[in-house]
Design a protein around this nucleic acid. Structure first.
Lengths: 341, 341
DNA sequence: CTGTTAGCGCTTTCAT
DNA sequence: ATGAAAGCGCTAACAG
């Protein structure tokens, strides 16, 4: 049918050379126009831009990154994306990175340090300019790779340990102590605790330790404690509080490992005809939106997760080379009095 | 202090050539060992692997992707990461991609089509093998770029329109109709609706249209309707239901645009002393965990979000070249009867 | 202000 | 089973 040309046009995507040819300048000039770098005459710029539009040219950043040894990539390694806590951090990272031209590349570890090592290795292969990790619990292998790479490293969420480079977050131990102080000031004396897996959520454990420390300083202790094995969830919080109260222990307040669990506890109270605070105090952690929407606003601690992501990304972008000394950025937290404790 | 060597070792990261030298073979042989490609003698492989371990060599995928014209990258463009719905999809994508050697690269649009275009352009610069987008609402510019790129494109969440390449999701229009049928079968006749922004959430509108269509077929209509301008939230659901009921309208059931809003409605009922179902039916959409943890399980529709992400990623990986014809993968949905409607 | 030259680190193709 | 040569598409460094 066709006249001697059997193969379809299938022309490859335009490259720098195509744009250069079309606009009658050299490749490097096109490159300069596109990157807005170096002195370019208005006339040349216009011609090049025209050719770019005409061809629909999209720069190949793989080639650009390789040639300039600057990938403009930031590796982001988080335990989970479905946990709103990390999703908020990720949003903060995105917000800070978007205007700077950096691209986040994600990895998810499922709360497992060995998986984290695998993820870090594969991200490092993309030659990122920096990497953001959650917490301090890394394998030796991860630490070695990070050290060898010489790139910037932000460890986020927690500041209760010594960072590799910079840590951004809050002191969970201190938050635990402040929860104890707050509840003591409200008159509570018989403390219960309902939590989730400490192996995967080290920070929940730190908060518990802070709580216990402060209680001990006042000659008190946790009188009833339950921890589930899996991750936190509303359903788990509901069932676990039910189990705890069924034992006959009568805490006057229950501290939950986080808001998800605490909201579940609230639901148990509703179902069991208990009035939060009057019958039993409920205290969470994180300051999620849902806690504020409950008939009685959940008493909790606001952890500034969005800010953590934002400041971490900003710190990395602001100083692309690893400083000699480590730093800590404390994003703080605030007690939300609420109405349940 | 030091003995004549002032500059620190600062040696660059090892590259293929270093490993080749150390193991006494050529670069290409090392490359073959690492990629497990081509015939290699057991002895050579062992020597190379040893040298890799010794140097701590990490392949530069930027260079690899450029040379092979195969990035093993999948662009993922979603409206939001903090919305659990998209986070679940993302998790499905991750799960499918992880074992295949593909890396997801994310972009977030904030529910804005122009921002989507910008994000798609910058992702395309990384020469991804495929791209995953939410929904069908793209700008002309986005469509042009996607067509020119010739890479595989999955549009996820929705299957109510014609896909560019492959669509993976459920029919929201049909879900809306089934919600109507279900509630009619439960005896409800006076339908209320509490929703959020349709401009950013086109699928919520499709569900509403399906609902209205089916009601019309039965000679019925929505008797009271309220929509907020912003995104869905528990608090918004609570306040909006309160507002709707305060008008004096007395719907016997209220359909919410999603579970977040419906849970908020539930909270209003608790605060106002209304018993869900007996006083007013509540119906959501998505089947979130929290709905199942409420004192009365929320009546809703399970949208298989994890599955959507998983199947989309699998479909793309399974066939790296764009097929001639488009396809639709229906992940379906299930009515969760629950106890609130 | 613009261009030339020489790679970046890897993989393809074609030999041997 | 292994290697040599060429080049992916771009940018740094140095002219001019």
């Amino acid at each position: 049918m066709s006249v001697g040309r059997s193969a379809p046009p299938q022309r490859a995507l335009p490259v720098l050379a195509d744009v250069a040819r079309l606009s009658g300048v050299s490749e490097i000039t096109v490159s300069r126009v596109i990157r807005n770098k170096g002195p370019i005459s208005a006339k040349t710029r216009e011609r090049v831009l025209h050719a770019v539009a005409e061809t629909g040219y999209v720069p190949n950043r793989l080639a650009g990154a390789l040639a300039s040894a600057d990938s403009m990539l930031v590796g982001v390694v988080l335990p989970s994306v479905t946990n709103i806590v990390f999703a908020d951090v990720l949003r903060g990272i995105h917000e800070a990175l978007a205007p700077s031209g950096y691209q986040p590349v994600m990895g998810v570890t499922g709360y497992d340090a060995d998986e984290e090592e695998r993820v870090v290795r594969s991200l490092l292969a993309w030659q990122p300019a920096a990497i953001i990790l959650a917490g301090f619990e890394h394998t030796e292998g991860t630490r070695r790779m990070l050290a060898a790479s010489r790139i910037r490293v932000a460890e986020v969420m927690d500041i209760d340990d010594k960072p590799i480079d910079v840590a951004v977050g809050l002191s969970h131990r201190s938050a635990g102590r402040d929860i104890a102080r707050y509840l003591l000031s409200r008159g509570y004396r018989r403390f219960g605790y309902v939590g989730h897996d400490w192996d995967s959520d080290h920070r929940a454990r730190l908060r518990f330790e802070g709580l216990v420390d402060e209680l001990a300083a006042q000659g008190l202790a946790v009188v009833a404690e339950r921890r589930i094995v899996g991750p936190s969830s509303t359903l788990a919080g509901r069932e676990t509080l039910a189990g705890l109260l069924a034992t006959g222990e009568r805490p006057d307040v229950v501290v939950f490992s986080n808001d998800d669990m605490a909201v579940g506890g609230y639901f148990h109270c509703l179902a069991a005809g208990l009035e939060p605070r009057r019958d039993v105090g409920l205290f969470g952690f994180n300051g999620l939106e849902i806690g504020a929407a409950l008939p009685l606003r959940l008493s909790t601690v606001r952890s500034n997760r969005f800010l953590i992501g934002k400041l971490a990304a900003e710190a990395l972008v602001a100083r692309p080379d690893r400083p000699d000394d480590t730093a800590i950025i404390n994003t703080g937290y605030e007690i939300e009095a609420g109405e349940t404790a």
